[in-house]
Nucleic acid binder design. Sequence first.
RNA 1: GGUCCAGUGGUGUAGUGGUUAACAUGCCUCCCUGUCACGGAGGAGAUCGCGAGUUCGAUCCUCGUCUGGACCGCCA
Length: 580
Amino acid sequence: MERTHVNGQLRIADVGKKVTLIGWVAKRRNLGSLVFIDLRDRTGITQILFDETLTEAVRNVRNEYILQVTGTVLERQSKNPNMDTGDIEIKVQEVKIINSASQTPFIIADETDALEETRLKYRYLDLRRPVLQQKLFTRAKIVKAMHEYLDANGFIEVETPILAKSTPEGARDYLVPSRIHPGSFYALPQSPQQFKQLLMVAGFERYYQIARCFRDEDLRADRQLDFTQLDIETSFMSQDDILTMTEGMLAKVMKDVKGIDIKLPFRRFKYTEAMNRFGSDKPDTRFGLELKDVTEVFRNSEFRAFETGLSERGSIKALVVDNAADYSRKDIDSLTDLAKKNGAKGLVTIKYLNEQLEGSAVKFFNEIEKEDLIKTLDLKENQLVLIVSDSWEKACSVLGTLRSHLGRSLGLYDKNTYDFLWVVEFPLVEYSKEDERYYSVHHPFTRPYDEDLHLLDSDPSKVRSYAYDVVLNGYELGGGSLRIYDCDMQQKMFELLSLTKEEIETRFGFFIDALKYGTPPHGGLALGLDRVAMILTGSESLRDVIAFPKNANAKCPMSDAPTPVDEKQLKELHIKIVTD
RNA sequence: GGUCCAGUGGUGUAGUGGUUAACAUGCCUCCCUGUCACGGAGGAGAUCGCGAGUUCGAUCCUCGUCUGGACCGCCA
């Protein structure tokens, strides 16, 4: 369909040109024998003007009608500095109504009045809003920068199957019944992990894919059922090589998308350091407020609340906040609630006022402990101390949650800062008391540190691994690892994770087999593309950067999926629905 | 699986144990030549999510249910 320009294009230099535009009616302002219409397309808005000779032609035109207009570019009598095209308008000579539109359930504009529920139900209208279009444009730019960088660095994009084999380790699988093989199921991939490793066995050396992944778990504002990751795998690269390569790519993304030069290399924190200082394995380092360790201060304390922290794998951690006087009983209760919600048994709070420690716990401290606490925390007048005593990990993570909460509520950081970092040296496995077995911290293909191998039998939870996470502003953007490339070691890993010989054979037999035929040392990582897009567009929710997202209840608000299916379909799939 | 919050014209909100449920915006009609969230006048539009209970009387209180949201569990 014919148009000479798009709606975000024309400027004062174009005055006098005869142009044809097409677009949606964003707004109509009728002044009697003069009608203004804001004509919108994905590039922007241009004001078009109808004088008394044409007002009748647009008399019935309403919002979201599509018009094709031909006219002359004029300099406006009164300009609008808030619009890119605000210096000009089009005096229309011909108008054609290309399509009409029913009244939309909400206003198609950046500032809309509808709730997200309504917006998602009419997502195709929601996506007409310029803000949302910009977010998807930004997302596309991110992907383009990644493609360019990886292509320039010798990576080849390979597609891996969506219908794959179920490996019920980790998240719940989405299952797809097989019509041809009654009673058997495909699984949708939680990630292309094994396929990409097999591509390394095959000798591709540098693979990537914009891969769709599926996990049948409950959703969150930053979690969807199906999501997209940039999946990367390389051979013959060290951990350092991979981190440096990834940094280069993210630097290009930041430059191309945001025009920001970020500092390389990223800071690197060992897992234990990140936990000790920030109480998180994905710390937000845009602000300080670091955790302190006060275990030794209370080493001989009889205070019952500190018992767990003083036991073998326990710690007592503290967080010091300024302006204690600002905190009412209610504020402190809400911090305590937050701590408990995150698994703490309680939160000890102490105010330092008039050079005295104040708080209900203080009576359990002796003079030496009081002095030592003030000295260790370097307490200043009017500070508030939050203390959690628990296992080391729990004490850290609870205070880490409080730290994030306070960082946000006290406005301790600048929203336009992008602070990238790596967390490295993750433990290989962690022990689950309920299940009485070890679980991989990353995944079962992760390579343990060579110098820790002797601990693999005696104390597996002390073994470190070549796993790494890239973190931005408190969000885990992605992670990866060097992989095991020795089939005996891989076998041993599965055994450590309490898989039986039969389970190993049926689930991973083909994979272990593959490792026998000259597997190169390899490793890679995966970046959550949706999350990257969410952060770079400043969005609150993942749903803003996904064209057609599911809601919190795992439904598509537009199509209502998932829905029941025909008896006939079920029969073909050999499936009977049983409700209890 | 759990905790908490919300459901009132198309949309977003206010509100009250008692006559006609309020406001904004959108919509419709009319007026208007410099608007840009145009302005002005008038108008239509709601069984207050659903069911049960308490009550003389429920949109309001109670219970249940459905829908949506945030979080915990879960997410190798």
